[in-house]
Amino acid sequence: MTAGPRMGFFTDTSVCIGCKACEVACKEWNLVPEDGPLRLTGDSYDNTGALGASTWRHVAFVEQQRDDQGLRWLMSSDVCKHCSSAACLEVCPTGALFRTEFSTVVVQADICNGCGYCVPACPFGVIDRREDDGRAFKCTLCYDRLRDDLQPACATACPTDSIQFGELGELRERARERVAALHDAGVAEARLYLDDEDDGIGGAGAFFLLLDEPEVYGLPPDPVSTTRDLPTLWRAAALAAGTLLAAVAVSFVEGRR
């Protein structure tokens, strides 16, 4: 199979209305089970909480009281970033996580043995293990739909085009124009998040237009794939192993008893 152009998401949070149609469409299409009993968090209208094994789109609600401009409501639909340098994929020992012909990152449920390594490896806290099932799950960027030339379920359901799907290069261009338009309209705080290929994850397949710092939405401000430091980490392990062997050998050198 030859790789086509890289496909991805541009989530423009400035037009998100918090309807959660993306959450519902994702669950429906992908047959994602219930995420535990219904509960109210008290955190604005966010009763989903976070991305997880059975939550592949998560709409965040941020209420900000600003002295000069009154109340501001930020809404943002979060999703797997499908990183270029994907830590989950790199640490997966079985090869269950793989990169598709659309440059997205997908778990093969028939291979995953539930070792759980991908869970703390992800710098965004996206992937998780389904406890009753034992395997890891996350957004597939609707791999099945993409192969049939359909848009992902969430993008199809989004009523405001806050979630846009397409060729990544094209989306980036569109996003830059959108930021410029917002700046012209006086929204100085508009900024792109994860659109830079030189960042710590080599650029994301899903990037965002945000109206505040990433951490306000629960996103890491400067994520780095943990495997970037792997040469250093392996060197330390090798040195430590050598030290251990030396410590054993030295203990056979007879001093006075």
């Binding site: 703390p120 992800c122 965004f124 998780d128 629960g218 996103l219 890491p220």
Partner: peptide
């Protein structure tokens, strides 16, 4: 974001 964790705890 409401003091919530950014990364997942190990399983």
């Amino acid at each position: 974001y409401y003091g919530r964790p950014i990364i997942k705890e190990p399983v």
